[in-house]
Computed example of a mutant assay.
Amino acid sequence: MLYGKLKEYRALITFPSLTEALGAEKVLSRYNCPFASIPTPRSLRSGCNTALCFPLERKSLVDDLIDDGVVLTGMYEAREDGFISLVW
């Protein structure tokens, strides 16, 4: 079941640490991409308890995150029946 901004945005990225999540917030802000920090869903938890969700149609910004040195552990599309891993 989707909740909050995740229901609206549908794209979710996870990180190995809070430092990486904060770095991603800076990059998304620089590109004027709306986002929300949310608790990492239990089924995707891998190190950091904070994930970012943002509009699925802006998923190409993941390349910019990587170019800026942000380390991700995964990118997912949130659906009512679960999370689908996305390739970037």
Rank of each mutant, 00 (worst) to 15 (best):
A51T: 01
V71I: 14
P41H: 07
T73G: 02
T73E: 03
T73H: 06
M75E: 01
L6F: 09
G74Y: 04
V70L: 03
G69L: 07
N32E: 12
K7A: 09
L22K: 15
V62W: 00
D63P: 00
V27G: 02
K5L: 11
P55K: 09
R45I: 10
T50W: 01
N49V: 06
E20R: 13
G4C: 01
Y31I: 06
A36I: 07
V87L: 09
R45S: 03
L72Y: 09
G23A: 13
V70F: 02
E57W: 08
P41E: 07
V71D: 01
P41W: 11
R45L: 15
T14Y: 04
S85K: 15
L18Q: 12
M75L: 12
S43Y: 08
I84Q: 08
S43R: 14
P41C: 04
N49F: 04
N32Q: 14
K5N: 12
N49I: 09
L28I: 13
L61M: 13
A36T: 06
E25S: 14
E25V: 15
E57S: 03
S46W: 03
L72P: 12
D81T: 13
L65F: 05
G23I: 01
A11T: 05
E8K: 15
S46F: 10
L56T: 05
V71G: 01
S43N: 05
S46N: 14
T19S: 09
L6Q: 03
V87W: 03
R45E: 10
W88Y: 13
L28A: 04
Y76V: 06
V71E: 10
P39Q: 12
K7Q: 08
P39F: 10
I38C: 02
M75T: 07
R30Q: 12
K26M: 12
I84R: 15
T50E: 03
E25F: 01
L72R: 13
R45D: 02
T50R: 13
A11G: 11
I13M: 01
T14M: 07
A36M: 09
T73S: 11
S17W: 10
A21V: 05
